[in-house]
Design a protein around this nucleic acid. Structure first.
Lengths: 144, 144
DNA sequence: GTCTTTGCAAACCTTTTGCAGCTAT
DNA sequence: ATAGCTGCAAAAGGTTTGCAAAGAC
């Protein structure tokens, strides 16, 4: 699902669009739209935030990226599209990829899912404190 | 965590606050703040949306409810606070509780979580189509 | 030339907040 | 009387959208 391009949609090439996807794919920071915008703005002084939002939306519809979720009010994305768990720091919002296969289809048909529900995929997110925030906690130097 | 009441906070009794929590606890619809507001507005004509938001925030800080996540732009809550998986319909946003213990601490220390990350809890969400939306799909009568 | 993409700004929506008045203790 | 709570309206902050200009084919 979400793989079908809209019937009459034929894309034209766009440098900015390419850069947006490349950037998201090249980072492991699980960026927000604003972060992408801020990174690319120096390269493309005429870039606008709306363009970033529009392209990210299209990428998601096309399956070129996935949404990790909304963290502290901002939606965060991941260019690594194969399902995998994430860790999110409850304090600073940092997102870390977790290695593991627990997000595969396995475990989906174990019987506790009502039969009228069609499951397409699952997301697993671990919450807690990242190293930096835990250190700050121990020192009492609350950073965030 | 999120169980500690703020140092100098002593609550006074409030009928509206009680009703808000009771309502959230009594439904399995995993409501949004607005839904709660709309349900209670007839009972309390002077209820304001801000009050609902304020109380829900406090409940979450006190561990009286949990956030399931942001679905179609709205945050959704659950009065069933013990960890359990959820199913979210990608089309209509319906949320269903899933029975299972996969959200317990088990699986958290299986080695694939970097040691500097302190994991407090995890969330598992299944995505797909609920029965109604799947039916609509089959009939071609797209409802949502 | 046609259709897509973009910049810009306004609009949208959910959530938060300031403040004055009200309520519980 | 003193704190906490609420209504109201405004503000905030992220995301979407309308439209005209620019770009791709």
């Amino acid at each position: 699902m979400t793989r079908t391009a809209l019937p009459g949609r034929k894309k034209k090439h766009s440098k900015k669009r390419d850069e947006i996807l490349d950037l998201i794919r090249s980072t492991s920071s699980h960026p927000s739209a604003r972060w992408v915008y801020e990174q690319l703005k120096p390269l493309f002084p005429r870039l606008s935030l709306g363009t970033v939002y529009r392209n990210i939306r299209t990428f998601r519809e096309d399956g070129d990226l996935i949404s990790v979720g909304v963290v502290q009010g901002e939606e965060r994305f991941d260019g690594r599209v194969q399902p995998h768990p994430h860790f999110i720091c409850s304090r600073c919002g940092k997102i870390v990829d977790i290695e593991g296969s627990m997000d595969k289809t396995q475990g989906m048909s174990e019987g506790f899912i009502p039969p009228d529900l069609y499951v397409d995929h699952r997301k697993t997110v671990f919450y807690g404190l990242c190293g930096d925030c835990r250190e700050a906690d121990e020192k009492g130097t609350t950073t965030v």
